[in-house]
């Protein structure tokens, strides 16, 4: 069915879509590839890790919510630059961003994830899961690191990552969309462009299905994050009140 769809969409349009999405991605990355290469082996020392671990649960939650809130702004900017997104009604723009921004961030995270030593960039240096011990969310953190390893194994190029994040953002099955058909059309074209990009590199035929097979784990992580946030809010209402406004807006149901 997708091959019939591909025929309808001229390859000229596919290239135009790919270029727009890749350009939008590269322009809205928090870290350039060079920065990440330079930082890749800047690891937290054991003392710095212990300092992170000795932080209070509230302080660590506040710190992480701030990082997520900053990163969300780049995802909003990414979405705005994707052809067709701003033509959607604003209700749907908000729904797609609220439902999809964390999934986009989880995919973007692999650019700052080093599978060789299982570390991720956090506030300027790389560290392992133990950095986040004081959050009290070991299951969530280990799921995120597992996802990072799995996605890194696919060795996505910048182009593939850009198109995959755009396709995930433009998910027509998000609840309460008013024009899901319009979103479906956009996503279809982006998936065709992504398949085209994968084939261009002669990488494994089933690379796209491997990428799509990671979506359930991402959804589980997003739901787990919401559960942890709700639980934290019950225990520490004042701290949760002071979470960054954008973080609260996106994740408060």
């Amino acid at each position: 069915e997708s091959s019939q769809l591909a025929a309808e969409i001229s390859s000229l349009e596919i290239d135009r879509i790919a270029q727009n999405v890749v350009k939008s991605h590269l322009e809205t990355c928090q870290y350039t590839t060079e920065e990440l290469k330079r930082l890749a082996w800047t690891l937290y020392s054991p003392e710095e890790i212990r300092a992170l671990q000795s932080k209070s649960c509230e302080a660590m939650w506040q710190q992480c919510s701030l990082q997520i809130s900053n990163a969300i702004q780049y995802v909003v900017e990414f979405a705005k630059r994707i052809d067709g997104f701003m033509e959607l009604c604003q209700n749907d723009q908000i729904i797609l961003l609220k439902a999809g921004c964390l999934e986009v961030l989880l995919i973007r995270m692999i650019r700052a994830f080093n599978p060789l030593n299982n570390t991720v960039l956090f506030e300027g240096k790389y560290g392992g899961v133990q950095m986040f011990k004081s959050l009290g969310c070991d299951d969530l953190i280990s799921a995120i690191f597992e996802l990072g390893r799995n996605l890194c194994r696919l060795q996505l190029s910048d182009e593939e990552l850009a198109l995959f994040t755009a396709a995930v953002l433009l998910s027509p099955d998000r609840p309460w969309l008013t024009e899901s058909k319009k979103v479906q059309k956009l996503q279809d074209k982006i998936y065709v462009a992504l398949q085209h990009e994968i084939q261009k590199k002669h990488s494994a035929e089933d690379k796209l299905s491997k990428m799509v097979s990671k979506l359930p784990l991402m959804k589980t992580i997003c739901n787990l994050h919401l559960d942890k946030m709700e639980f934290f809010r019950l225990l520490h209402p004042e701290t949760a009140m002071n979470f960054p406004p954008l973080y609260k807006e996106v994740f408060n149901s």
């Binding site: 909003v76 900017e77 705005k80 604003q90 723009q93 908000i94 961003l97 954008l246 807006e249």
Partner: peptide, 19 residues
């Protein structure tokens, strides 16, 4: 709109300061 005023504002105008 009230419930999502920051998202609305980000969608409307400027991008993050350092982009």
């Amino acid at each position: 709109t009230e419930r999502h005023k920051i998202l609305h504002r980000l969608l409307q105008e400027g991008s993050p300061s350092d982009i």
